[in-house]
């Protein structure tokens, strides 16, 4: 295990200067995500119209892995269709739990910097929380948790 590869400059940079951080006035979808184990929480708001994510923002308190993941996620899905976002959500989750290899066929691009988190089982949920929350927002689920029946490790994201 090498955790150095996880705390790469790009992750540290997104943690220091998170993109799309804040609230969104014209939001029409939102969701709250919690990780009760560490107290992390974030709120995702987005403007979805005619199947496109026109704008997205997040706010919350979390570790560097979670915040950088949220920052890079918002930068990636902004302007994309809901269907493309759902594909990324699935691929990101598969990568962090070891079901998808970074050199395989996928759409993750720079998001593969989170590849190393699969070696840190206790931190996988930190990386996934924003994606799980985005999925909830896109599917009109108000709040999600990383634990119990909402646990993204045990529930297929497609059914959230």
């Amino acid at each position: 295990m090498n955790t150095k590869s996880l705390y790469q400059e790009v992750i540290l940079d997104h943690n220091r200067n998170p993109r799309n951080y804040g609230s969104l006035d014209n939001a029409n979808c939102s969701a709250e995500g919690h990780n009760p184990l560490c107290g992390d929480h974030l709120n995702i708001k987005l403007n979805l119209s005619r199947g496109y994510i026109n704008d997205i923002a997040f706010q919350g308190e979390s570790c560097a892995i979670c915040k950088a993941s949220a920052s890079m996620m918002t930068a990636n899905v902004k302007g994309k269709t809901q269907a493309d976002a759902e594909t990324l959500i699935q691929e990101f989750r598969d990568m962090t739990i070891g079901k998808l290899e970074p050199n395989g066929n996928h759409h993750l691009g720079h998001l593969t910097v989170f590849f190393g988190v699969r070696n840190l089982p206790t931190r996988v949920k930190c990386a996934i929380l924003p994606w799980h929350t985005l999925h909830a927002a896109l599917n009109s689920v108000a709040t999600i948790s990383t634990e119990a029946e909402d646990d993204p490790m045990h529930v297929s994201i497609g059914n959230a």
Partner: peptide, 19 residues
Amino acid sequence: HPHDIGTLLNQEGIAVRTG
């Protein structure tokens, strides 16, 4: 965040609890 501290201290062989 404590979680980042815990993960990075582990890299130095130091076991602490975070949470």
